[in-house]
Amino acid sequence: MKKLVAVIPVREGSQRVKSKNIRPFAGKSLLEHKLEIIKQLPVDDIVINTDSEEAIRIAQREGISFHRREPYFASSKCSNSEFHHYLAKVTEAENLLIAQVTAPLIMQESYNRAINTFYKVNCDSLMSVKVLKEFIWYNNKPLNYSIENTPNSQDLPEYLVPTFGLVIVERASMLKTRSYIGKNPHFYKVTQVEAIDIDTELDFEFAEFMFQKKFENTL
């Protein structure tokens, strides 16, 4: 069984941003940009898991393996837990690197550091996270501070928010927990820029702007 396989999930349908994975983004599709990065990583194989015929054509053109996703697992009826279990079930590997195309600003250096970290620390999964230090309210009450003793923002507790953009996980853990995050996770902090995820049209436009700004000398 291969030690580390990079899996790139590409769903054809998108409820908020039509065809976001394969539509033009800074000169190429999000999928093509992601492939450029993943091809440079120390992985044993790359598999595009998709129900998109266009993504399959890109895979064939680039000489990349693909798995044709079953319709249910590409539908909105499929829960994340079901999909994560399915992804592990159909991918033959000891460990999976899940590379989301909707996180186009994660740098190659971050992937390399994450891979090295995964093998060095005692964990069954590595998840990219962003730091949240803000005043949070729920049901008309503050959650993370006392209103009678409001602290400075820098003194608020530090919360870690999974971004799901960069994931490395043992296949056995995914099969057991049905999740990208295992029982013994390591949370890998990324910058606010790398944490950008495309979920809306505004996200798409902003991510493209930041991508072009970051790579303006190489595009």
Rank of each mutant, 00 (worst) to 15 (best):
K2Y: 13
K2R: 11
K3H: 03
K3T: 02
V5R: 12
A6D: 12
V7E: 06
I8A: 00
Q15C: 00
R16D: 13
R16I: 03
V17Q: 09
S19Q: 05
S19A: 04
K20P: 06
N21R: 13
I22E: 11
R23D: 10
K28Y: 08
S29M: 02
L31C: 06
E32F: 02
E32D: 12
E32M: 09
K34M: 12
I37F: 03
I38S: 05
L41P: 11
P42N: 10
I46E: 03
V47W: 02
N49Y: 04
N49K: 05
N49Q: 08
D51K: 04
E53W: 00
E53Y: 02
E54M: 02
I58Q: 06
Q60C: 06
R61P: 08
R61W: 05
S65N: 12
S65L: 03
H67T: 11
R69D: 15
Y72E: 15
A74W: 01
C78L: 05
F83M: 06
H84F: 04
H84C: 02
Y86S: 14
Y86P: 14
K89P: 07
V90F: 15
E92P: 05
E92I: 05
I98S: 12
V101M: 06
A103Y: 06
Q108D: 08
E109K: 14
Y111A: 00
Y111H: 02
R113M: 12
N116W: 00
N116E: 15
F118C: 09
Y119A: 10
K120D: 09
V121I: 09
D124I: 07
S125W: 01
S125I: 03
L126C: 08
M127L: 05
K130T: 14
V131W: 05
V131G: 09
L132Y: 11
W137F: 15
Y138R: 15
N139E: 12
N144D: 02
S146D: 11
I147R: 13
E148G: 06
P151S: 10
P151G: 09
L156K: 04
P157W: 01
P157N: 04
Y159V: 08
L160A: 02
V161E: 10
P162I: 02
G165Q: 15
R171S: 14
A172Y: 00
A172D: 13
A172V: 02
M174V: 08
Y180K: 13
I181A: 00
K183R: 04
N184Y: 06
P185S: 12
H186W: 09
F187G: 15
K189I: 14
K189L: 07
T191K: 01
I196Q: 13
I196G: 07
I198C: 06
D203Q: 04
E205Q: 04
F215S: 12
E216P: 00
N217L: 10
N217S: 11
L219E: 07
